[in-house]
C-alpha cells in the first residue's frame, strides 16, 4: 500500500501572531516555521498503518511550500516517513483553496497513492475546506476526522468523529482521510531516525511539472484578500484579590450585573 501524507509548513502555532496591515500578511520576524504540529498526527496515523500492514507499504510526505523551507520537512522523515515530495513555485504564492487544491491534486495524481491522509488543521488562515476540495479534484472518497483506522484487504474500516458523536464507516481504497487529534500522540523522532532522515530523498516539483490547464496564485484564485487588521485591542481588565469565596463571588456577580449579563 502506498500512503501519502500531505503536511503544511506553518508559523509556530505556539507563538503569538501579529499581522502586518500593509502587506496583509503575518509578521514572520521572530516566528519560526515548523512542520505543522497537527500534521504530525496525520503522519502518526500513516506510520501506524504502515506498521500494521507491513510488507511493501510506504509512507511519502507531500508539502507545498517555498523551496527555502525544504529542511523543515526532515522532521517528518525523521519520524519515519520513507521519502518526501516538495512542490515549490513562486507562481503558487497567494493561492486560495480553489487554486491550492487544484495544484495539489495534480501533484498527488503524479505521485500516486492508495491512501491519502490530508493534514492541514492549523491556525495560519486555513479554511478546513482543502480536504474536501482535494477529494473532488482527485475523484476519490473522503472520510474526515478519523480517530481509528484498520486496513482490511482492499478497504478501510474507520471510526470518525462527527459534530454530535461518532460513526464507523467502511471505505474502499483508494481513499482519502483526515485524522482527528484523538488518533494518538505523534511519536518522537529517534536519534536513529534523525540520522537516517539525512539520507532520505526530498523530490522537488514545480508548477511546470504538473501540466495545469489553469492559472494558480493570486490571479488564479476565486477569492481576494482585501484587508487584514488586528482585532480591537483587548486590554488587561480589573484584577481583584479574593480572600474568600464570598468576596470573589460578589466581585464577579457585581461585574456581571453591571454588564447586564445576569
Amino acid at each position: 500500500m502506498k500512503i501519502v501524507v500531505t503536511v503544511k509548513l506553518v508559523p509556530d502555532p505556539n507563538a503569538e501572531k501579529r499581522i502586518d496591515t500593509s502587506t496583509k500578511r503575518l509578521v514572520r520576524t521572530g516566528v519560526e516555521t515548523v512542520l505543522n504540529p497537527y500534521d504530525e498526527y496525520a503522519l502518526e496515523a500513516a506510520l501506524q498503518l504502515k506498521e500494521k500492514a507491513g510488507g511493501d507499504t510506504t509512507v511519502t510526505v507531500f508539502a507545498m511550500a517555498p523551496e527555502s523551507l525544504k529542511e523543515t520537512l526532515r522532521k517528518a522523515l525523521a519520524m519515519g516517513a520513507d521519502d518526501a515530495v516538495l512542490l515549490s513555485d513562486p507562481a503558487l504564492e497567494g493561492s486560495d483553496v480553489w487554486a491550492t487544491s487544484y495544484a495539489m491534486s495534480h501533484a498527488l495524481k503524479k505521485i500516486g497513492f492508495d491512501l491519502l491522509i490530508v493534514g492541514g488543521l492549523s491556525d495560519d488562515g486555513s479554511t478546513g475546506a482543502t480536504p474536501g476540495a482535494l477529494a473532488e479534484y482527485l475523484q476519490t472518497p473522503l472520510v474526515t476526522n478519523v480517530r481509528k483506522a484498520d486496513a482490511e484487504g482492499n478497504s478501510l474500516k474507520l471510526e470518525r468523529e462527527t459534530d454530535t458523536g461518532y460513526q464507523t464507516v467502511a471505505a474502499p481504497l483508494p481513499c482519502a482521510i483526515t485524522t482527528a487529534l484523538t488518533f494518538g500522540e505523534p511519536r518522537y523522532a529517534s536519534l536513529k531516525g534523525i540520522m537516517g532522515a539525512k539520507k532520505k530523498t526530498i523530490a522537488p516539483l514545480t508548477v511546470g511539472d504538473l501540466g495545469l490547464d489553469r492559472e494558480v496564485g493570486v490571479s488564479g484564485s476565486k477569492t481576494a484578500l482585501l484587508a487584514a487588521n488586528p482585532p480591537a485591542a483587548r486590554g488587561k481588565g480589573q484584577v481583584v484579590e479574593a480572600a474568600d469565596g464570598a468576596t470573589g463571588a460578589k466581585a464577579i456577580f457585581d461585574f456581571l450585573k453591571e454588564r447586564k449579563l445576569v
Binding site: W98, T127, T130, G132, L134, N145, K222
Partner: peptide
C-alpha cells in the same frame, strides 16, 4: 455552517461548483 460536516461540504463544493470559499 462552520462545523465539521459544514467544512467537508464546503470543500467538496469548491471543486464541484468551481467556487471560492470564505471560511468562518
Amino acid at each position: 455552517a462552520n462545523t465539521l460536516t459544514g467544512k467537508d461540504v464546503a470543500g467538496r463544493l469548491v471543486g464541484r461548483l468551481n467556487a471560492g470559499v470564505c471560511a468562518d
